[in-house]
Every structure is written in C-alpha cells, then in structure tokens.
Design a protein around this nucleic acid. Structure first.
Ligand SMILES: [Zn+2]
Ligand SMILES: [Zn+2]
Ligand SMILES: [Zn+2]
Length: 290
DNA sequence: TAGCGCCCCCTGCTGGG
DNA sequence: CCCAGCAGGGGGCGCTA
C-alpha cells in the first residue's frame, strides 16, 4: 500500500508560481479555508497574485465556518477555465485526529486531504460547481463584518441573519423553544427549520413518505425514478446523492479522510478510525508491514 | 427579510466480499 | 468482520422575491 506522503504535495504548488511560497506541510502556513469558511481578518489570511489565491501564515488564526472545520482548497488560475479549479491543500499535521475544536479555535488533530497536480485525480467535495457557487463568491469578496464575532459575510443579508444569533441572550433566557420537543434554538429561523422535522411538509407523490425539506424529498424521489445525476469521473458509477458520491470518491483514494495520528492508516469514517484507535492501532506492526 | 436552494457534514442500516 | 453504498437528517449561508 502506497501512502501519499506529504512531502510530495509541495510540488503541486510549485507549478503555480515559484516566487510565492506555496502552502506546504513543512512551513508553518495555515491552510486556506477561505473558499468555504469565514475568516477573521480575511485580508491578512489571503492574497491574490497572478490570478492565484494564496494564504499567508497566521499566528493562531484558524478559519472556521459555523461549528465545523471545512476542507481546505485553493482557487487557482481562473483565467483559463473560466472559474477556479479546485485543489485541496493538506492541513498541517496536528497532534490528534481530525477534529476542529470550535471552543478553543484550534485543531486537535490532523485533517489531511490529498491533492495532486492539476491533471491528476483528487478528492473533490465541490462536485459540479458552477461559477456562481458559494465557494467562488467567497473568494476575497466577503466584506460585511460582524462587530461581535468578526466573522465576514458576502452579503448584508447574510450578516443580518447571522446577527440574529447574537441578538439572543447567550444565557439561553431568550432561546426559541420547540413546542414539539425540548430542543432550543438561538434564532427563530433555526427553530422554524427544526419544526419542519416535526411537521414534515414535503410529501412524496409516489409513496406518501414525508420529509422536512424539499431537497430531501427530491433525493428520495430519485429512489423511485432511478435518477443518478452524480457521476464518478474515475469509474463511471453514478449516485443519486452528492454526499454519497463524495463518500464513494474516497474509495478511489488511498488516503482517506480520517487519519490515525499514531500510524499511517486512514479511514473513510470517524467511527472506523475511532475503532481502530481503540482496538487495533499498533504502529510498529504497521511500519514493518510497509 | 423570510424562504428557498444548495452546500457540507454526519450516521444508521444493510449487504456483499 | 470490514467496508462501501444507500438513505436520510442537521446546520450554515448566499440569493432573491
Ligand atoms: Zn422539536
Ligand atoms: Zn416515495
Ligand atoms: Zn468511482
């Protein structure tokens, strides 16, 4: 089994511009999560040169969006294809598994995604993106800043919606409570979204099953129609659901999403990694078998 | 500005190898 | 038993009427 070693990754970025220090594992550069994430002080994190988006090293500034860590990507050379190609950049190696701790705003582990040259295969969770998609819109144009948490938003509406969360008491006094269960939400919008999981307003015309959101119903209807709009570029399998295609793409990669910090093994699911770490991680045995 | 649509993330279940 | 596929649920956020 040949693991893609991190050292090889820097070569891909040397292709872009030798004058600019590429993101690399060896450097202390923090990964660019800009295309999906929301930054503190975004201008200090990213800069453009020759139509290529680069990231600068930041001290203790990690990018996050909401409550999750997002995959890292670079927008490259959008002058050729009309919109940026997508590559993943490896996150620096951290001390544990690939968990981003929002509370401490720090990685507790390694979240590694492989990348290859622009002609090679890659894990790409941004399938079928168009130039209008969120990630492209976010490339350097977030200009509405929340004064309370410094998050940046592309539109004023996005900022207004976000500020609903701050407008409520953090103590929970003014939380919006669901009358159907005991869940509480910090915004009315979030509560309304949740209530749909009780009322299930979207009903399948084929079997009558109900769903909370139209796109969930749409995905379900594909199980009746057999439509599979998401195709794998590597093996021509197709899937009804984008997430399932993304999961499938991991089967084409030897580096899975979740990596063990003690040995080189990677897994497609956090549950598999957890089980490995609890029951079966023997680094010496792994090293000798390679 | 609320609703929509799309994004990504995650997980339980299941069946094949 | 392991892993991949399937189906479905959750929150976030930009766009638009
Ligand atoms: Zn409820
Ligand atoms: Zn149905
Ligand atoms: Zn495939």
């Amino acid at each position: 089994m040949s693991i893609l070693h991190y050292g090889a990754l820097t070569n891909a970025f040397n292709l872009h511009d030798a004058k600019v220090t590429p993101l690399s594992v060896e450097s202390n550069y923090f990964p660019c999560l800009q295309s999906l994430g929301v930054h503190n002080e975004i201008q200090q994190v990213h800069y453009w040169q020759n139509s290529i988006l680069y990231s600068k090293p930041q001290q203790n500034k990690m990018c996050c969006s909401g409550n999750r860590i997002l995959l890292d990507r670079q927008c490259q050379d959008n002058s050729k294809s009309g919109y940026p190609q997508v590559s993943y950049v490896p996150l620096p190696r951290f001390s544990s598994t690939n968990v981003f701790d929002v509370t401490s705003m720090a990685f507790t582990g390694q979240a590694s995604i492989l990348t290859q040259s622009t002609t090679g295969s890659k894990i790409d969770s941004s399938l079928n993106r168009t130039p209008n998609d969120n990630n492209l819109r976010l490339c350097g144009i977030s200009k509405f800043k929340c004064p309370e948490c410094m998050k940046l938003f592309v539109t004023s509406g996005g900022l207004m919606k976000h500020r609903q969360f701050h407008s409520q008491s953090v103590s929970g006094r003014n939380c919006f409570s669901c009358k159907h269960c005991d869940k509480q939400y910090m915004s009315l919008g979030a509560l309304k979204m949740h209530i749909r999981t009780h009322t299930l307003p979207c009903k399948c015309k084929y079997c009558g099953k109900s769903f909370s959101r139209p796109w969930l119903l749409q995905g379900h209807i594909r199980t009746h129609t057999g439509e599979r709009p998401f195709s794998c570029a590597h093996c021509r399998r197709s899937f009804a659901d984008r997430s399932n295609l993304r999961a499938h793409l991991q089967t084409h990669s030897e580096v899975k999403k979740y990596g063990c910090q003690r040995c080189a093994k990677t897994y497609s699911r956090i549950s598999l990694l957890t089980r490995h770490e609890v029951t079966g991680c023997f680094p010496q045995a792994v090293a000798s078998s390679e």
